[in-house]
Write a protein that binds this DNA or RNA. Structure first.
Length: 892
RNA sequence: GGGCUGUUAGCUCAGCUGGUUAGAGCGCCUGCGUCACAUGCAGGAGGUCGUAGGUUCGAGUCCUGUACAGCCCACCA
C-alpha cells in the first residue's frame, strides 16, 4: 500500500473496491444479538424491470445514511433489500420484447411458455438494479435479499389471501371496475390517474315515445348511448316533473327507455336530465341498482364497439364517437355542442383512457381493515415525518372503497381459488384441493387471474423476514423501525402495509415513515422519460463519485419537499470531498516517515495541548450533541451542513493553518502533540461524515494509524459522543478573538491594497482579559495575518498617530500607515464604520429606553442588549477619535 | 369542490420552540501560482424576508386576509 493518498481525488479509483471489501467481509450482515437493540429498514423493492433513477438515488441515500448512523450508534442494524415483480410493467415489457423479436403475441405463447420466458428474463436482467444500488454505497444485507415472487413470499401471499377469505373479507363479484383496454386488465382505483382534458358536451334530443317533445340531455361520451337504459331527472325539477314515468326513444337505435326520478341529477348541470348508462359510469351504475334497471354493454375489453352498437360494431370507441355524432347530427338529434373540460381517468402505466366496465373481479372489503390502520396513526404507534403526511394517509383510509385485487395478467401471484371441473364449485385453499366438497370430483382448474402487485408488497415488512413461519429474524427485527419512501407512494404501499400488518401482525409495520419528495431537474420539472430530462445517477457517479451525489442529495433537502438536481450542486459536493481528501493528505504526510511507518504521536496528555489544540477538540466536541440530535430527527441536511462547516471552515481553514507553523518547526514535542490532535480531530470528523460519504471516509480512514482494538472498517466504529473533559471554553474564546483579529488585519491589508506577502506590524490596545488572550494568541497573529511584530500599547498615547485601525469588542487594532500608505482607504473605512455603529447605537438605545421592553423581557435578554450597546458605544468612540486624525492627514 | 406546500441575496435553498448586525452554496467583483487542495486561498459587493393588517417590549419566525406558483384528493352528465 502507498504511504499516502494519491494527489488527486478520484473516487473511481476506490469506490467499487471499498464496496467489494465491505460486502465480501459480511460487513452489512447483522449478527442477531439480543442484548443490542435492533434497527430495521425494509428497502422499498424496486421493480425488476427498473433502471436506477434519481428517485432511487435519493431514497437509497436516505436509507443508507440512517442505517450507517444507527449501526455506528451500536444498534443491530438490518437493511433488507429486494425487488418487486411489478406485474403489469414486467409483463408488458417482456411481451413487447417478444413481439419485437419474434412477432409473437401473448396468446401465441400461452401461459406456460410466457411464464418460462418471464423467469428467464428475470434471471438475466432482474439483478441489474442490484448492481446499480451497490454503486451508491448502500449498506444493505444482500444475504437476506428477497423477491416478491420467491417461494417464501408466495407462501405469505397465499396465506394472507386465504385468511382474508376465511374472514369473509375477500369476495368475488360483478362490479363496475376500471378497465385498461391496452393492458387488458382491471385496475384498482388508485391506479387510475385523473386528468382534465379538453372535450365537449354534446346535447342530444331523445324524442318521446308517444310522439311528444321528448327530452334533451348532455353527454361527454356519446358512444356509450347504446348502453343507455333510462333518463333520470331530479324529482324536484319542475321542468321535468310531467315527464317522469313517460318513455323516450334512443335516437337512431330505436330502443324505448323510461324517464325516471332520482336525486342524483343536479338541475344546475347540463340540462338537468341525465342519460343513465350503468355499464359505463359508476354513478349511473348506482342509479341502475336503485331502480332495477338492466345493464347493457356496448364496449368490449379492447375498447371496440360490441354488437349492441349495431352498425358501429367493431369500431374503436373514439372512431365510433365521431361517426355516431355525425350520424345523429345528420338526423337532426344534435341540439348543440359546448366546449368543456372533461375529467378523464387514465391508466397510470400506459396512460390509456380507462374504460369503466362491468366485470367479475376479486375484491377486498376495506372498511374493517382500514379502521385499525387509522388507529395506529392516531395513537402515534405509526408516525409520519413530516407529520402533515398523516392527513393524506388518514383521508385516504377514511374514504376508502373496496380494493379490486384481481388482474387479468399472467405474471404475478395466481389467485388460490380452484373450480371443480365437474360441478363448478369454487374452493379457496392454500393448496390445490383433492376432492370437491360438493360433488366429490377430483379435477380442478385454478383461477386464471393473478393478484395486484401491491397485494404482495403490502406484506413486505414481515413476509421478507419469514412470515408466516415464526422465524428468529421475524421475532427480532419486526416491527421495523423506519420506512423511507416518496409521497407518491403513500396510498399504493404505505397505507396498505399498515393495514396488512395490523391485520396479520397486530401492530404497525414500522415506527416512523420518512416521506421525501421528488428529484426534479434544474428547471423544477419532474424528471420523466417523455420529457427526456432524466439524469442517470450512474453517469453522475462516474463523473463525480457516489459520495458527491449522496452528499448533494442529502444536504439539499427539506423533509418532504422536492429537490432540484443540478450539476453545480454535485460539483460543489465533489469539491468538498476534494477538500477533505487534501486535508487528509496533508495530515498523513505529516504523520508518516519515508518508509511508511508512523512518526511518534503524543498520547492523551491534555497538559501538553496548546490553545489551538484545545479549541479544535472543543469545537468538534461541542457540536456533537446538535449533530446527533439532527440525525435522530432525520434532519440530515442540517447535520450535513454542520459537518461541512466543521471540516472546511474550522479544521481546514484554521486548525491546519495553525498546525503548519508547529509541524514545520523544530520542536519535536510540539510536533507530537500536533499530530495527536490532527489524528484525533480528523478521525472524529471522518466518523461524523461517514454516513453521508461512506467511500471517501473509509478510504482515508485506512491510511490513519489504527488504535488498539479498532474495527476492520470505519463503518463499524462508534459514533462520537460528547466528552465533558474536552470542554475548553477559555481556549475557544482565545482562538475566536484571535480569528477576529486576524480577519481584521487581513481586511485592513486588503482595503489598503498592501501586498499579501508584505509583513506588517500591528499595535494592539486591549482590555485586561482580551490582552491576556491576545498574548496567548500572538503566534497565530504573526503566522496567519503575516506580521513581523505584534506589540501591546498600555494606553492611547502609545499608539502611533498615523495608522489604519479596526475595533473589536474590547480591542483596538492599529496598523501603522507608513507600512500601508493609504489614508484615503482608511478614511473611507472609518466613515463607513462610524455610520454603521451610529445606527446600531441608536437602535440599541431606543430598545433599552423602551420601558415595556425593560420591564417585560427576561433579564438575560436585557443584559445581553446592554452589553451589545456598551460594545457598540466603545467601538464607535474609538472610530470617532480616530477619524479627525486621518482626516487631518488627508488634507495635508 | 376539498386539502396541502411554497413565496428570504442574480440562482438554488437554510433559518429549530419569536430575542446578537437575516446565513450557506453557486454566480459576481478585487487580489493571490503560498511547499494539503486553483476541485484552491484571502478580501468584498449584494436582501424593505410576496403583499395588507393584527398579536407582542420585540416578528423572516405567531394569527388573519390577500396575490402568485405548484402538488394531492374527488363518481359531476
Amino acid at each position: 500500500m502507498e504511504n499516502n493518498l494519491p494527489k488527486n481525488y478520484d473516487p473511481r479509483a476506490f469506490e467499487d473496491r471499498i464496496y467489494e471489501a465491505w460486502e465480501s467481509s459480511g460487513a452489512f450482515t447483522p449478527k442477531i444479538d439480543k442484548t443490542q437493540k435492533p434497527f430495521t429498514i425494509m428497502m422499498p423493492p424496486p421493480n425488476i424491470t427498473g433502471q436506477l433513477h434519481m428517485g432511487h438515488a435519493l431514497d437509497q441515500s436516505l436509507q443508507d445514511v440512517m442505517t450507517r448512523f444507527k449501526r455506528m450508534q451500536g444498534y443491530c442494524t438490518l437493511w433488507l433489500p429486494g425487488t418487486d415483480h411489478a406485474s403489469i410493467a414486467t409483463e408488458v415489457k417482456i411481451l413487447d420484447k417478444i413481439k419485437a423479436e419474434e412477432g409473437k403475441t401473448k396468446e401465441d405463447l400461452g401461459r406456460e411458455e410466457f411464464l418460462k420466458r418471464a423467469w428467464d428474463w428475470k434471471k438475466q436482467y432482474g439483478g441489474r438494479i442490484d448492481t446499480q444500488i451497490r454503486k451508491l454505497g448502500s449498506s444493505c444485507d444482500w444475504s437476506r435479499e428477497r423477491f416478491t415472487m420467491d417461494e417464501g413470499l408466495n407462501k405469505a401471499v397465499v396465506e394472507h389471501f386465504c385468511r382474508l377469505y376465511e374472514k369473509g373479507l375477500i369476495y368475488k363479484g360483478s362490479r363496475l371496475i376500471n378497465w385498461c383496454p391496452v393492458c387488458g386488465s382491471a385496475l384498482s382505483d388508485i391506479e387510475v390517474e385523473h386528468v382534465d382534458k379538453n372535450g365537449k358536451y354534446w346535447y342530444f334530443r331523445y324524442p318521446g315515445a308517444d310522439g311528444g317533445e321528448g327530452i334533451t340531455v348532455a353527454t361527454s361520451r356519446p358512444e356509450t348511448m347504446f348502453s343507455d337504459v333510462a333518463i333520470a331527472v331530479n324529482p324536484d325539477d319542475e321542468r321535468y316533473k310531467h315527464l317522469v314515468g313517460k318513455t323516450v326513444i334512443l335516437p337512431l337505435v330505436g330502443r324505448e327507455i323510461p324517464i325516471i326520478a332520482d336525486p342524483y341529477p343536479d338541475p344546475e348541470k347540463g340540462t338537468g336530465a341525465v342519460k343513465i348508462t350503468p355499464s359505463a359510469d359508476p354513478n349511473d351504475f348506482e342509479v341502475g341498482l336503485r331502480h332495477g334497471l338492466p345493464v347493457i354493454e356496448c364496449i368490449d375489453e379492447s375498447a371496440h364497439m360490441m354488437e349492441t352498437a349495431g352498425k358501429y360494431a367493431g369500431m374503436d370507441r373514439f372512431e365510433c364517437r365521431k361517426a355516431w355524432v355525425a350520424d345523429l347530427d345528420a338526423a337532426g338529434y344534435l341540439v348543440k355542442t359546448e366546449d368543456m373540460v372533461i375529467p378523464t381517468g387514465e391508466c397510470y402505466r400506459c396512460h390509456t383512457v380507462v374504460e369503466p366496465r362491468i366485470s367479475e373481479q376479486w375484491f377486498v372489503k376495506m372498511k374493517p381493515i382500514a379502521e385499525p390502520a387509522l388507529k395506529i396513526a392516531e395513537t402515534g404507534e405509526l408516525n409520519f415525518v413530516p407529520d402533515r403526511f398523516r392527513k393524506i394517509y388518514d383521508h385516504w383510509l377514511e374514504e376508502i372503497r373496496d380494493w379490486c385485487i384481481s388482474r387479468q395478467l399472467w405474471w404475478g401471484h395466481r389467485i388460490p381459488a380452484y373450480y371443480c371441473e365437474d360441478c363448478g364449485e369454487m374452493v379457496v385453499a392454500r393448496e390445490e384441493p383433492h376432492t370437491c366438497p360438493k360433488c366429490g370430483g377430483h379435477k380442478f382448474r385454478q383461477e386464471e387471474d393473478v393478484l395486484d402487485t401491491w397485494f404482495s408488497s403490502q406484506l413486505w415488512p414481515f413476509s421478507t423476514l419469514g412470515w408466516p413461519e415464526k422465524t428468529e429474524d421475524l421475532e427480532y427485527f419486526f416491527p421495523t423501525t423506519t420506512l423511507v419512501t416518496g409521497y407518491d407512494i403513500i396510498f399504493f404501499w404505505v397505507a396498505r402495509m399498515a393495514f396488512a400488518s395490523v391485520d396479520e401482525m397486530k401492530c404497525s409495520p414500522f415506527k416512523d415513515v420518512l416521506i421525501h419528495g421528488l428529484v426534479r431537474d434544474a428547471q423544477g420539472r419532474k424528471m420523466s422519460k417523455s420529457l427526456g430530462n432524466g439524469i442517470d445517477p450512474l453517469d453522475v457517479i462516474d463523473q463525480y463519485g457516489a459520495d458527491a451525489l449522496r452528499f448533494m442529495l442529502l444536504s439539499g433537502i427539506a423533509p418532504g419537499s422536492d429537490i432540484r438536481y443540478s450539476n453545480d450542486k454535485v460539483e460543489s459536493a465533489r469539491n468538498f470531498a476534494n477538500k477533505l481528501w487534501n486535508a487528509s493528505r496533508f495530515a498523513i504526510m505529516n504523520l508518516k516517515n519515508e518508509d511508511g511507518s508512523f512518526k511518534p504521536i503524543a498520547g492523551e496528555d491534555t497538559a501538553r495541548l496548546m490553545p489551538e489544540d484545545r479549541w479544535m477538540l472543543s469545537v468538534i466536541n461541542d457540536s456533537l450533541a446538535d449533530i446527533t440530535a439532527n440525525m435522530e430527527k432525520y434532519e440530515y441536511a442540517l447535520a450535513a451542513g454542520k459537518i461541512y462547516e466543521l471540516i472546511w471552515n474550522q479544521f481546514c481553514d484554521w486548525y491546519i493553518e495553525l498546525a503548519k507553523g508547529r509541524l514545520y518547526g523544530d520542536d519535536e514535542k510540539q510536533k507530537e502533540t500536533t499530530r495527536f490532535v490532527l489524528v484525533k480531530a480528523l478521525k472524529a470528523l471522518l466518523k461524523l461524515l461517514h454516513p453521508f460519504m461512506p467511500f471517501i471516509t473509509e478510504e482515508i480512514w485506512s491510511f490513519l494509524p489504527r488504535e488498539e482494538g479498532a474495527k476492520d472498517f470505519l463503518m463499524h466504529e462508534s459514533w462520537p459522543v460528547y466528552d465533558p473533559a474536552l470542554d475548553y471554553a477559555e481556549d475557544v474564546a482565545t482562538l475566536e478573538l484571535a480569528m477576529d483579529a486576524i480577519k481584521a488585519v487581513r481586511n485592513i491589508r486588503a482595503e489598503a491594497g498592501a501586498a499579501p506577502s508584505k509583513k506588517l506590524g500591528v499595535v494592539l490596545l486591549a482590555g485586561e482579559t482580551e490582552r491576556k488572550r491576545l498574548e496567548a494568541a500572538e503566534s497565530y497573529l504573526l503566522n496567519l495575518a503575516n506580521l513581523h511584530s505584534v506589540s501591546f500599547a498600555s494606553g492611547k498615547e502609545e499608539v502611533p498617530e498615523e495608522t489604519m485601525s479596526a475595533a473589536l469588542p474590547g480591542v483596538e487594532i492599529y496598523v501603522p500607515l507608513d507600512e500601508l500608505l493609504d489614508y484615503e482607504a482608511e478614511y473611507a473605512r472609518l466613515t463607513k464604520e462610524r455610520d454603521r455603529l451610529t445606527t446600531e447605537v441608536s437602535r440599541q438605545e431606543a430598545k433599552l429606553a423602551n420601558q415595556n421592553f425593560v420591564s417585560r423581557a427576561p433579564e438575560k435578554v436585557i443584559s445581553n442588549e446592554r452589553e451589545k450597546l456598551a460594545n457598540y458605544k466603545d467601538m464607535l468612540e474609538k472610530v470617532l477619535s480616530r477619524l479627525p486624525l486621518v482626516e487631518a492627514k488627508l488634507k495635508r
